[in-house]
Design a binder for these strands. Structure first.
Lengths: 233, 233
DNA sequence: AATTGGATGACACTCACGTGACAACGCTCC
DNA sequence: GGAGCGTTGTCACGTGAGTGTCATCCAATT
């Protein structure tokens, strides 16, 4: 059983997105929509990490954070704050209240997952795959390096996250909408065709002469990392 | 007993189409035609998912959605909005009063079912078949791949949906009208003969020498995926 | 044989995807 | 500060796969 994560967030779609991706990574996910509910839940069970929204009904994130730190059982439990853009000043207050990390909405899924992993590595050194590999491709989350046939490749940040996300579910086809949510952020307004462009750039970046293209276009639907790619080697 | 789905839709034929196909997938289906009725029904029983039309008599979909999110019992219940073309796009996503997903009419049945499955996978991880298989044929919904005798086949989007739909109810005969509704969309105006052409293309695409044709023509009625096909192997 | 309904090849047309170009932005380094 | 560089989102354009319709041919049914 993986590490337990509690999501405290009132925005339902965001909660689902997070839950889905965390579970896909092997976490045990629980979630509540209100600050006071969260407090009760935390009395029942202490998770390994909490994702805490800044603005909450019932009990504000910052206040909840303070209370968590007071109780001895939850004193050292890692907390990641989710803050909306524009609350810049609040960041510092959030951290000073005792959050271990914060992340600004909108954020990409890989970015969040990276922070979760980073925090859990400190407290719960359960081994979580840091190296994604398929065929002659290798993606190291920790060092942010991508190799193909032991040749180092240069990818932009977005291309890296895109490849990272695709490689976590080889074979699975994602719509452009899904990719925008996962790679760019959960409520950014970006043209869907932009995904095409980045896929194109990614393809170009990982292209090696006489080697097959690992990214598959599914006409009318979206893209996927070709799961047969490794076998074709 | 499968997951329970509530349909809130005033267009009777569409309701029937949805009910029919959802039940074929093993869902427990209930339906109401008015927004205010839906609210009452939801007080009696909370389903696992709601399909909600945007425009409704009695109480608009958007208002109903808001109210659903207010009540604690239905706060986290997945909602899929059915919207007419023209109100589409990011507006709804932005305006979204809490729907988890939306789908634009006209939509195909496989498309809708895919979204229903996706949402229920998160909240109710009851195992739902992602792989359709019959004889030497294999259709993977997740990777969008079709194999026959372990040989990868190439199908266009429409052919894929057509085969997917036929394979979910092996042996059952569908009229052209039914197929148009299910595969193309519930109110597209397309010549019925077009179905013939696509069936022909599908047949050609899945043809392998000396293997039987899995698609059966029922003269005067329509087509079906041959349920004896698997046994003929 | 006549009639009805289905199969199929041809064709025009649409539309989704790939790609190069470009402006805006944020960096770093003088 | 300003110049240079890399990255990003959008657009325009070209191309080819996919789609719908039709005419013709073929098979089944009467």
């Amino acid at each position: 059983m993986g590490p337990r994560v509690l999501i405290v967030e009132d925005e339902e779609p965001l909660t689902l997105l997070l839950r889905y991706n965390l579970e896909a990574e092997g976490y045990e996910v629980d979630s509540v929509g209100r600050g006071d509910e969260a407090e009760i839940r935390l009395r029942e069970q202490v998770p390994d990490l909490v994702l805490l929204d800044w603005m909450l009904p019932g009990l504000s994130g910052i206040e909840l954070c303070r209370r968590i730190r007071i109780r001895p059982e939850t004193e050292r439990m890692p907390i990641i704050m989710l803050t909306a853009r524009g609350e810049e000043g609040d960041r510092i207050r959030g951290l000073s209240t005792g959050a271990d990390d914060y992340i600004v909405k909108p954020f990409s899924v890989p970015e969040l997952l990276a922070r979760v992993r980073a925090l859990l590595r400190r407290t719960k050194p359960t081994h979580i795959a840091t190296l994604l590999t398929a065929g002659d491709m290798e993606l190291d989350r920790e060092t942010h390096r991508v190799r193909r046939s032991n040749k180092e490749l240069h990818l932009g940040p977005t291309e890296f996250r895109l490849l990272e996300f695709l490689m976590t579910s080889p074979g699975r086809v994602f719509t452009r909408e899904h990719l925008l949510n996962a790679v760019w952020g959960h409520d950014v307004y970006i043209d869907e065709r932009t995904v095409d462009v980045h896929v194109g750039r990614l393809r170009k970046a990982i292209r090696i002469s006489h080697k097959p293209d690992p990214i598959r276009t599914v006409r009318g639907t979206g893209y996927s990392f070709d799961e047969t790619f490794a076998r074709d080697e």
